Deep mutational scan, measured.
Amino acid sequence: MIINNLKLIREKKKISQSELAALLEVSRQTINGIEKNKYNPSLQLALKIAYYLNTPLEDIFQ
């Protein structure tokens, strides 16, 4: 099972779900679904998340 630290990292960087969704060009519901482990992001989306949060991919999804 993948450990998902997206919410923790996003909140630590003081970025809202809506702000991150806008940067990634996805819906806020997509971010919410990823954070609640209801949706697994594509590799492309996971890499974009890591880029915009300036955090290694391995720290977000373990």
Rank of each mutant, 00 (worst) to 15 (best):
D59V: 11
L43P: 12
L53W: 02
A21Y: 03
S18P: 06
L43S: 07
G33W: 15
E19Y: 10
P56L: 06
Q29F: 08
L43Q: 09
N5D: 04
L43W: 13
R10H: 02
P56F: 06
I31E: 00
I49K: 00
L53V: 03
Q62E: 10
K14I: 05
L45A: 02
N54S: 11
V26C: 07
A50D: 00
L8P: 06
I15P: 01
P56R: 11
L47V: 10
G33D: 15
K14S: 09
E11V: 10
S16E: 05
N54H: 09
S18N: 11
V26F: 03
N54W: 05
Q29D: 14
T30I: 15
R28I: 15
I31R: 00
S18L: 11
Q17C: 04
L6M: 11
F61W: 09
K36G: 09
K14D: 07
Q62F: 14
R28G: 06
A21N: 02
S16Q: 05
L47S: 08
K48S: 06
Y52G: 03
L43K: 12
Y39H: 10
L53K: 01
L8G: 09
S27D: 11
E58G: 12
Q29W: 12
L24Y: 01
E11M: 14
N37Y: 11
Q44H: 11
I15D: 00
I9G: 01
K48I: 04
L23F: 13
N40Y: 15
N32G: 08
L45K: 00
I60F: 05
T55G: 02
K48E: 05
T55Y: 06
P56I: 05
K48D: 04
I31S: 00
T30E: 08
Y51V: 07
N4L: 06
L20H: 01
D59F: 10
P41Q: 02
Q29S: 14
Q44K: 13
I15W: 06
L20G: 00
L20T: 01
I60W: 03
K7S: 07
E58S: 12
E25T: 08
N37E: 06
A50Y: 02
T55N: 03
L47F: 08
L8V: 14
I15R: 03
N40H: 14
Y52E: 04
S42P: 12
L47A: 09
N54Q: 14
K7H: 06
N54A: 13
N40W: 15
V26R: 02
L57G: 02
L43F: 12
L23N: 07
N5Y: 08
S42V: 06
N4T: 04
K14W: 06
A50M: 05
K12S: 13
Q17Y: 04
P56H: 06
G33K: 15
T55V: 12
S16T: 14
A21H: 02
L23Y: 14
Y51I: 08
S16N: 05
E11K: 11
N40Q: 15
L43A: 10
I49F: 03
K38F: 13
I49S: 00
Q29N: 13
I3A: 09
I34S: 00
E25D: 13
K13T: 06
L8K: 15
N4Y: 05
K12P: 01
D59I: 10
T55R: 04
K7V: 06
P41H: 02
R10M: 07
K38G: 06
Q17K: 07
Q62V: 14
K36M: 15
K12L: 14
V26T: 06
I15E: 01
I60H: 01
L43Y: 12
G33M: 15
L8D: 09
K7Q: 10
V26K: 02
M1F: 14
R28H: 08
S18W: 12
L57N: 02
I15Y: 07
N40L: 15
G33L: 15
G33T: 09
F61N: 02
R28M: 13
K48L: 08
K48P: 00
P41T: 05
L24C: 15
L45T: 04
M1E: 10
L45E: 03
I31L: 14
N37I: 04
Q17V: 14
Y51W: 11
I3K: 14
I60C: 03
A22R: 15
Q29R: 14
N5V: 05
S18I: 11
E25Q: 15
K14E: 08
A46P: 02
K36S: 14
S42L: 03
T55L: 06
T55E: 09
K38I: 14
L8E: 13
A21E: 02
L8R: 14
K48N: 05
Y51L: 08
N37V: 04
A46Q: 15
I49L: 07
Y51C: 09
Q17E: 04
L57R: 04
N40D: 08
A50T: 03
K14T: 05
S16P: 05
N40M: 15
L24K: 01
Q44A: 14
Q17D: 03
I9P: 01
K38W: 14
A50R: 02
K12F: 10
A21W: 03
E25P: 04
L45W: 03
L24H: 00
L57H: 05
G33E: 15
N40V: 15
N4M: 05
S18E: 14
K13L: 14
L43T: 09
Y52V: 14
L57I: 13
D59N: 10
L53S: 01
A22L: 11
A50H: 02
N32R: 15
L6F: 02
L53C: 03
